[in-house]
């Protein structure tokens, strides 16, 4: 960890000003940032502590729910409204990390969580995300953890989180405050694909801070977060499927799916939701959904199995959600 100045933001405007400065990073729970600072993957000259801002609340918002950026993962997952109306979100959060980490990790911080790619965290290896232009270690090295969708020649890393995958399925909105004022961004558009600039992972501009995530009116139905991982707990997803699916009679009235472990962002393909909505569930339909999901999938050797795994995880999720397996 390099020496840095520690500053505490007391008001939101103050936080934006502080965070806009050069070589400055904001810290909330710190569970990812301190990890990366110890490795000198992150080397801020100034650290702005956001924890004293009044952003930890979880409150009713129109017909939905507004989760403050500083609400911890625990606070969100145990919140009665989240458990009752957005069980997908509770399930996804609880499938991630550990209780110790969830007690510190925050909504905003979790959205900004960086990749687990082992070339990114190893400063003696090339990584375009950490050091633009140095190359992608994983591309020709070991890609066991890596993405199969939306990759680029510069980067094949994944977004490692669970919470945001559920939020993508739930069509949440990210509220952002900055020096120029506030704005809202659909969560599905918050994270970026790597392209030529894998070091830019989301739409936040310098000095901008996430203030909340809002969830729309509950959609009801069956909500499933299926996380496939190598051990039964405390492991990042090989593949995860977040599904909010409501049946009316024999047809799917509402379907919203998102996927983790496959791409540089929580993966949402509106074509899949459109395909399923209004249809009668069948294995043939599920196959089509998987075809859409994976039509451009590309494996990199060690992670090739993610492609059939994603297909099967999606199928199993849809069977579970619809009760149809024929």
């Amino acid at each position: 960890m390099r020496p840095f100045d520690y500053k505490r933001a007391e008001r939101l405007e103050h936080a934006g000003q502080l965070a806009a400065a050069e070589d400055t990073l904001a810290i909330a729970g710190g569970t990812n940032l301190i990890d990366l600072m110890k490795l000198q993957v992150e080397t801020p000259a100034t650290l702005v502590d956001l924890n004293h801002l009044p952003l930890a609340g979880i409150e009713e918002h129109e017909d939905g729910l507004r989760i403050g950026a500083l609400a911890t993962n625990t606070a969100t997952a145990v919140h009665p409204r989240v458990r009752a109306d957005y069980p997908l979100l509770a399930r996804a959060i609880l499938a991630g990390a550990t209780q110790q980490l969830r007690n510190k990790a925050t909504t905003g911080g979790n959205l900004c969580q960086r990749t687990r790619c082992w070339y990114f965290t190893n400063t003696d290896q090339p990584c375009n995300k950490r050091e633009p232009g140095s190359g992608c270690g994983a591309l020709m090295g070991r890609a066991d953890l890596h993405a199969v969708l939306g990759t680029s020649e510069a980067c094949i890393a994944t977004y490692p989180g669970d919470m945001a995958v559920a939020m993508a399925a739930l069509d949440a909105t990210v509220e952002i405050a900055g020096e120029k004022g506030s704005r809202s961004v659909p969560l599905r558009e918050f994270h970026l694909l790597p392209g030529d600039t894998p070091h830019i992972e989301n739409v936040l501009e310098p000095g901008e801070i996430i203030t909340a995530v809002t969830l729309p009116t509950p959609v009801g139905g069956k909500q499933i977060y299926r996380k496939v991982r190598e051990r039964s707990s405390y492991a990042f997803a090989l593949v995860s499927v977040a599904a909010a699916l409501r049946m009316e009679g024999e047809s799917i009235a509402h379907a919203a799916l998102a996927f983790g472990g496959l791409a540089h962002k929580p993966w949402h393909d509106p074509r899949i939701d459109d395909l399923l909505t209004g249809e009668k569930p069948s294995m043939a339909l599920f196959d089509k959904a998987a075809d859409l999901l994976l039509e451009d999938a590309q494996g990199y050797g060690e992670n090739d199995a993610k492609i059939p795994l994603a297909r099967r995880a999606l199928t199993a999720t849809l069977i579970d959600a619809t009760g149809v397996s024929a």
């Binding site: 569970t31 502590d49 924890n51 110790q100 980490l101 007690n103």
Partner: peptide
């Protein structure tokens, strides 16, 4: 693991000054 204000956390991933 320590308890901070009653909640368990990983004390290695938090700065004392916070």
């Amino acid at each position: 693991t320590m308890l901070v204000n009653g909640q368990r956390i990983n004390s290695c991933l938090t700065l004392a000054v916070m």
